[in-house]
């Protein structure tokens, strides 16, 4: 039997088996041809394994589908909840913020339009909120999978976020109905909506990657998320107009760092044509990009200990 290696041995071995670039390409070729998998310790910041992600793409679909299906099973109203939740929130916000507290919509939008003004924000906000909530606990709720079978772990938060899209579609129908009721014209600006939705999705995924990985190690995260989301909602122009942030250019810049500001402003612009996207939209997109890329790397780095820590 080989005598046990000194403590540093493992580290050296780990470096040695990572072949230099030239050798790596030949190995990659071999990997594709003969379907060989190499299992070895990986250290440092791992590159994203897109090949595996692609191979398992159908799993994203199945897990998303499972989440949606299970969520509404044995619920009397079923998918109706996807409609009631934003509608009820809209009613409450309209009564409290608009009628009682006198909060006004964006300048240029009549006060009676507050319900649809609020709904235009609730739509992306509730999508973001639900996606982030599910994503942050997704790894822990799927612990039984993580400890039993291999698949790219990124799939789990990814499908948790994607599962919110169906809800979004249903509440979008409500929005369309409200547009008819309030007489909001259907313009070509609406074609921009998918882009703003994508931004909300990426924002939820970006933060979800960070929080889900952190939650594996620190369960504090799941207690923190509801609070974080409440605070985040008030830091976004959901119930009020972003125009109220007039304290100083400094605070306006800080405000723009919240990607949901860009998303909600975008939705309102697409519907009402107020406050067209400006440089703050780019700031939002930039923040999402930074969070997403860093989240991806953090997630991949922590991925190898998920099964041992969870």
């Amino acid at each position: 039997m080989v005598p046990s290696a000194p403590p540093g041995e493992g580290l050296r071995k780990g470096r040695r088996v990572n072949p230099p670039p030239v050798e790596r390409t030949t190995r990659m070729a071999e990997r594709v041809n003969t379907n060989v998998t190499y299992i070895r310790p990986v250290r440092g910041w791992i590159n994203i394994n897109l090949r595996d992600l692609w191979l398992y793409r159908e799993l994203v679909y199945f897990l998303t589908w499972r989440d949606i299906k299970v969520r509404y099973k044995q619920a009397l109203l079923g998918i109706g909840w996807a409609i009631f939740q934003p509608v009820l929130s809209m009613v409450i916000f309209t009564v409290i913020f608009n009628r009682f507290l006198g909060v006004k919509p964006d300048s240029g939008i009549p006060n009676e339009f507050y319900p649809i003004f609020g709904f235009a924000a609730l739509l992306p906000w509730q999508f973001f909120q639900g996606a982030l909530q599910r994503a942050s606990v997704s790894l822990v709720t799927n612990a039984n999978l993580l400890t039993k079978v291999y698949f790219p772990r990124l799939i789990i938060p990814l499908s948790a976020v994607a599962a919110g899209l169906v809800d979004f579609l249903f509440s979008f129908i409500v929005l369309a109905a409200m547009m008819l009721y309030f007489g909001v014209p259907f313009t070509a600006r609406l074609l921009w909506l998918p882009l703003f939705l994508l931004l909300a999705l990426l924002a939820a995924l970006a933060v979800g990657l960070w929080l889900s990985a952190l939650n594996v190690q620190y369960r504090d995260v799941q207690h923190m998320v509801p609070f974080l989301l409440t605070a985040w909602m008030y830091a976004s122009p959901v119930v009020y107009s972003a125009e109220v942030i007039t304290v100083s250019p400094f605070w306006q810049a800080v405000y723009a760092l919240n990607p949901m500001v860009g998303v909600i402003q975008g939705f309102r612009w697409a519907l009402f044509g107020t406050n067209p996207p400006d440089v703050s939209m780019l700031v939002s997109a930039g923040v999402v990009l930074v969070l997403f890329v860093s989240g991806l790397f953090y997630f991949r780095r922590m991925e190898r200990i998920f099964a041992d820590m969870i």
Binding site: A5, K13, V36, Y38, P41, A307
Partner: peptide, 10 residues
């Protein structure tokens, strides 16, 4: 499911 600390497998 989990990664080795040392060694490798093919």
């Amino acid at each position: 499911v989990t990664e080795p600390t040392e060694g490798e497998a093919e």
